[in-house]
């Protein structure tokens, strides 16, 4: 890299409030790779929870606000596939009838990336030491991990290879579960509107993950992470950013 590139971090509201360590890991990882990280402090929520519940007017407010806050930057990185989908794909639908906003939405979409998508696009060479002697967590035991594909990230953004390549590059061995792209049961408000169905889905997900023998499930979405942690017992659930950061120190 000839000159330092500045990327803006959009933490997502869930990371901001519930798992800030994921945001911290993202920042550290990006800095280590030579990026300057900015954190536009006015940011709150991309609007996805409201969009998924049908509150379009409220969502459009949050979308316009988020566009204003993020558009000055060269690139925006998110530690979450679902919110990236919201900005990359859904803002344009939402603001389709407002030509000026639509243009701005499209411009922002083109420079907004989920973390592993950003790393792959930039062609950064990751190297790490997720081997028995390395730092902490499961990586330290040399156990294989399994990767959960979050729905929007793999189906709408088409990011299946990118997170796996990043994990493998830093030394993890991934053991695939039976249906890695089967929904974890979160679905935002779905998880409290229909908690019985939601939990049954999560239980099935965890069963498939545990059947691989892995002790760690890695996922790139804060929502899935929270959902699986809510029911996981024998298995650790870790965010992609954390999994990457802790073995590249």
């Amino acid at each position: 890299m000839s000159e330092t590139k500045t990327v803006a971090l959009f933490t997502t509201c869930m990371v901001d409030q519930i798992m800030p360590e994921v945001g911290v890991a993202t920042v550290h990882l990006l800095r280590r790779l030579g990026y300057e990280v900015a954190f536009p402090e006015a940011q709150t929520c991309c609007g996805q929870p409201f969009y998924n519940s049908g509150f379009q007017k409220e969502t459009a407010n949050l979308a316009r606000r988020t566009i204003e806050i993020l558009e000055p930057y060269e690139a925006v990185v998110l530690p979450g596939g679902s919110c990236t989908t919201m900005i990359r794909l859904e803002y344009a639908h939402l603001l389709a009838d407002e030509p000026d906003w639509l243009r701005r939405a499209n411009e922002l979409a083109a420079k907004t990336f989920e973390l592993s998508q950003f790393l792959a696009r930039e062609g950064v060479e990751l190297s790490g030491d997720a081997t028995p002697s390395a730092s902490s967590g499961q990586a330290a035991t040399g156990q294989p991990i399994t990767y959960h594909d979050s729905c929007h990230m793999c189906r709408m953004l088409g990011l299946k290879e990118e997170p796996r390549e990043a994990l493998t590059a830093v030394g993890y061995t991934i053991t695939e579960m039976a249906e890695s792209d089967r929904c974890c049961g979160f679905g935002g408000l779905f998880s409290i509107r229909m908690p019985e169905v939601s939990n049954a889905m999560t239980a099935d997900k965890l069963r498939q993950a545990e059947a691989t023998g892995a002790h760690t499930i890695v996922t790139a979405d804060p929502g899935c992470l929270m959902q699986m942690r809510g029911l996981a017992e024998g298995v650790e659930v870790k965010h992609l950013a954390v999994a990457l950061e802790e073995v590249t120190r």
Partner: peptide, 16 residues
């Protein structure tokens, strides 16, 4: 509301 599923607490400090 999670019906047996553990709910996350807000972190001691937000990322902000």
């Amino acid at each position: 509301p999670g019906n047996g599923r553990k709910l996350p607490a807000l972190a001691k400090k937000s990322f902000h």
